[in-house]
């Protein structure tokens, strides 16, 4: 008797666990014979809670440690090449383009792994103020980042948004490509295997039209990054994000998927500049000011 194949159940990824959507709903992306979770607003809110809880300790990790964890992601992905290629084929890629995308994605994780302990030096400054103070500026993560992945590239686009956000110490709630969601869940398994603490990255699958306004209007999300070229969506995201003055970053797909998707400026875009002052006592002068 022929062996019966074990099919994979595609679930979402919240707080380091793989639950089903609380809504109990599913959808079938066109041409893909899989039931994918149709995530709800409640799933999103749960994911934000998990992301918020995980963020400060992730940001508190040493840059060296974050760098090693990002590199570990590349290592684990390399071992899962066949699975990613298989999923990309299922989602309509050609063999060649699937291989190219997996290679580019693994290399991109390595690229951003290398930035973790360097971008701070690039973007920090000691500021020569005219008064007797030591004054410096450095980057700090914005906090919880909501990411809306590229629709056309389910692996490279999503990975780039997550890598830039977590390299810079943020936590992420990401919405996978609606039509090509399979790689996102497998990527979640990779992250889960790579010492990325639970909650630092969270994945939802579902319909962008249902979820976008929840992503942009949530009061405990600090920044929203959108990869895509739909100007109507960008307008809506901008309008509905004003309630808590969320930082909006909209990137064209060409930018994220091409060579320019490798840039430390994508990390600094999701960081705040903090400036600290402290008095310096002037030896031999009239004394320190406060």
């Amino acid at each position: 008797m022929a062996r019966l194949e074990i099919k994979k159940t595609y679930k979402i990824y919240i707080g380091g666990k793989f639950p089903r959507t609380e809504s109990g709903r599913f959808y079938n992306p066109k041409g893909i014979d899989v039931n994918v979770c149709l995530s709800s607003r409640k799933d999103f809110r749960n994911a934000v809670v998990a992301a918020r809880a995980a963020q400060s300790s992730w940001a508190g990790r040493s840059a060296y440690n974050r760098s090693q964890i990002l590199y570990r992601i590349a290592e684990i992905m390399e071992g899962r090449r066949a699975q990613f290629i298989e999923e990309l084929l299922q989602q309509g890629s050609t063999k060649k383009s699937a291989e190219d995308e997996v290679n580019a994605t693994i290399d991109r994780w390595v690229y951003y792994a290398g930035w973790c302990d360097k971008y701070q030096q690039l973007f920090s400054s000691v500021n020569p103020v005219a008064s007797s103070h030591f004054n410096f500026s450095q980057l700090e993560p914005m906090g919880v980042v909501a990411a809306i992945a590229s629709e056309s590239s389910s692996l490279l686009g999503l990975s780039t948004l997550i890598a830039t956000a977590i390299a810079g110490g943020n936590s992420v709630v990401a919405l996978a490509s609606e039509s090509k969601p399979l790689c996102s869940i497998t990527l979640a398994e990779v992250l889960n295997d790579s010492d990325v603490p639970g909650g630092v990255v969270n994945f939802l699958t579902g319909k962008a039209d249902e979820l976008l306004s929840h992503f942009s209007s949530h009061m405990d999300v600090n920044a929203l990054v959108y990869c895509g070229n739909d100007s109507k969506k960008i307008l809506k995201l901008k309008e509905t994000s004003a309630d808590n003055l969320k930082r909006i970053r909209a990137y064209a797909e060409e930018r994220i998927l091409g060579e320019k998707g490798e840039s430390p400026y994508l990390i600094s875009d999701l960081n705040e500049v903090k400036t600290t002052w402290h008095p310096v006592e002037k030896i031999g002068a009239a004394g320190s000011s406060y």
């Binding site: 500021n127 020569p128 103020v129 005219a130 008064s131 103070h133 004054n135 500026s137 500049v273 400036t275 600290t276 002052w277 402290h278 008095p279 000011s289 406060y290």
Partner: peptide, 12 residues
């Protein structure tokens, strides 16, 4: 830190 309301053009 140990000061307040200081401003300078070089300081973001």
């Amino acid at each position: 830190a140990n000061t307040f309301n200081k401003f300078d053009p070089t300081s973001p």
